[in-house]
Structures are given as C-alpha cells and as structure tokens.
Design a protein around this nucleic acid. Structure first.
Lengths: 207, 207
DNA sequence: ACATGTGAACTGCTTCACAGCG
DNA sequence: CGCTGTGAAGCAGTTCACATGT
C-alpha cells in the first residue's frame, strides 16, 4: 500500500468521531463539506483523504453515514481488540487506566507495571500492577499489541529497548523524551512540556 | 516576524531539552550533528531551524551550550512565568496538577475549576479547586495566560467559548474533540484516542 | 443540478550542497 | 580543515478545478 501521511490518519480519526455522533443521531448521509466544516479542514481534503482507500461516496449525494463509519473503522484497524500494557503506575498511568475512551474503542488494558514494591500487587482501576522485572516474560507470553510508557524521562529509553526486544511493535510514550526505536516499531510521543512551550512561543511571538 | 512552522517550534523544544542535559553535564559546545542525532533529525534541519532566529554558532566549532540554551529559552518565551488554570479536576486534571514539569519550566498553576460541588473548595496537589461558575470573573481579574481543558468532550467547546470570551489566548485541550476558536487564540489538542488509533492503523497496515 | 473523485498546480517543509568563516 | 549558514533543489501535503456519475 501507498504510504499514508500521519496527518491523514489523524484526520480519519476525527471524521470517524463525527460519523459516530451522526450515527447516534440517526443521520443517513453526510457530505465532505459537512465533515470538513466540523473538522476544521476543507472538503477537498476530506475527499482526498478518503480517496487513498477507495470510493465511499455517491456523486451528487454524499456519504452514507453508517457505511463510511464502517469503512473508517476497518481502515483504522478498529474491528478487533487491541491488548495494551501500561508501564508506570504513577498519576499518568492511573489517569490512563481509568480513561473510558480506551475500552470504548477496543483497547483493553491487560496489565500495568511498576518498579515500586508498594504498588506491585495492587490494582489500578481493577488492573493488576505487576513487577516490571516480569515485563519481558509477560510480553513474550501474552503478546500484547501496544505498550503505553508512563514513566519518567530517565528510564524511558531503557524500558522501550526492553519492550522492543520482547517484541512490542507499537508504543505510546508519555515520557518527555525523544525515543529511538527500529523502523518496524511505531512510537507516538505525547509531550505536554512541548505543547506548553508551543503555547509559550505563540503567546510570545504574535504581532 | 516570518511565520514559523509548528514542526520547527516542536524541534526547538527538543533541542532545548538536550542542551539542558548538556548544561548539567558541563559540556561547553555542541554541533548541529550531535543535536540532530539525539533528536532524530538531520544536522541541516537543526541549522535551518535555528537560522530563522539568528546565527548562534561558530563555524568550525559548533554552538556554545549555555548560549544556545539561553537563546532558545528566549525564543520560546520561557524567560518569564506563565500563569495556568486547569479546568476539570478529574483524573487528568489531577495528573497535570502534580506534574513537576510545569513548575520546572516556568508554568505556574494558579487555580483549578470543576462543576462537582464535592470537589469545589478542596485542593489538587495544593491548588485550590474553585467553582467553574467563577471562571469568567476570575479570568478577568487574574489574567492567567494559559488554560488547560481537562474535561469530557461534551462540554469542551462551551467552556472554550467562555474562556475565549474572558480573554484567554492559549489553550491546551485534553478533551477528545476538535475545537474551534478565533485565530488569535492558540489551541493545542492532545488526543490520546487519536494517537491510539494511529497505532492501530500502523499495526494494521504494515507490509 | 449536485457532490464526489482526481490529476494538476501550488505551497511549504525538508534535504542538498557548498560558500563562508573561524 | 571543520562546521555553520543558506540559497537552490527536491519532495510531500494541500488546494484547485473540473470531468464524472447519479
């Protein structure tokens, strides 16, 4: 398959969110223009994004809401359950563990890991907190699909290396750090510090 | 000033993080190549990024670590304190309130807001939780610089509108929602659901 | 008539490659 | 000589505009 831009995938997520809202309201069809207005983009962009994957609309009419929603779920790989482990049972890990958006979209948290002996054996919103020493063994045995890194910057690269070695192919990183991984491993970093500095820059440099 | 790409600003944040690490280790100079390797980019990119703001290096030698760090802090507007309010005292709000990276970089949380009467009057890591009804009045009186939205998707646009009306110019949004604001208001959205779907897509569509 | 699907044009970010300077 | 700073070239993502199908 042709390489798809990151920005395109992100917009597909947005479109899907609106389509689900429309599904809930029982709307039958939607136009690229309507999706664009909601998502803060253009109708041409919407059509181009979809065109990478096929033709989902009817000329003169628009898109069938349920059909397009189904197609997008298929494209985004949301038809199946993804098994997620959270590494780090601190505040961020805890916030993630109880985040309802996970389950809702087919992401099941199967375990959490921490170094702190006081936390190990406890639970995070019902999820077992295990000793991080077991990380490799568990990953090799359970084959989770995605790991979420919710640990301080210092240890992040080392834990990522261990996860990669154990066979993990997708990582969501909350440590404020650039991480390096082989090209067959996808790493997405969410960095609050960076976003705040972006706001600081915007506030400082406007005419 | 010439318009600076978002990607450039994000990389400046990354460079600054490395420079601070180097400062701590007492290194005197660094080359664009070194910064590039650490940050997962190219030396040409590093030099181009910096070139938008001036000439900070010495040919044949590289950059003075403390000088470049100072310059970047200046560029990013980190020389001053930014006053932040958090809207939403749930799990995400709580995780943010105790996040040490804020204070460390000059972002001071001055207040938190919530609708829940059980929470109002309480504290979040020492920060007072106020009734959200006071939002406009407080913003008008205290002039915080940045608002962090840590509330469910449903109410997010309405609260953003109130913040904009009250005069806020920078918002960090954690609600899984596309938000619309006037062009003089900078909104950065951190959307975990979207990132997870990006990972799902990557796992699904690789050859 | 209306809205999609898509080549072509455009815009802007990244990479190249080398002149310039310490 | 080594590394920066920067025009020029290359490339990728966005926008345009219109032919196409209903």
């Amino acid at each position: 398959m042709k390489r798809i831009a990151d920005s395109t995938v992100r917009r597909l997520s947005i479109y899907l969110r609106f389509l689900e809202e429309f599904e809930g309201r029982g709307l039958a069809t939607v136009s690229s223009d309507e999706l664009a207005r909601r998502g803060g983009t253009t109708s041409a962009q919407v059509r181009k994004d979809l065109s990478f994957f096929g033709s989902f609309g009817k000329r003169g009419l628009g898109y069938s809401v349920p059909e397009l929603a189904t197609a997008l779920r298929e494209i985004l790989g949301l038809g199946r359950e993804w098994r997620v482990v959270i590494v780090g049972a601190g505040k961020i890990g805890a916030a993630l563990a109880q985040y309802r958006g996970f389950k809702q979209r087919g992401f099941t948290i199967v375990a959490a890991y921490d170094t702190n002996p006081d936390k190990v054996g406890g639970r995070l919103d019902g999820i077992e907190i295990r000793d991080i020493a077991r990380l490799e063994r568990d990953v090799a045995a359970d084959h989770p699909d995605i790991a979420v890194l919710a640990i301080p910057a210092e240890g992040a690269q080392a834990v990522l290396d261990r996860l990669v070695y154990a066979g993990i192919k997708a990582v969501l990183n909350f440590a404020p750090m650039s991480l390096h991984a082989p090209s067959d491993v996808t790493v997405k970093t969410v960095n609050m510090a960076m976003e705040l500095e972006g706001l600081s820059f915007a506030l400082t440099n406007r005419e």
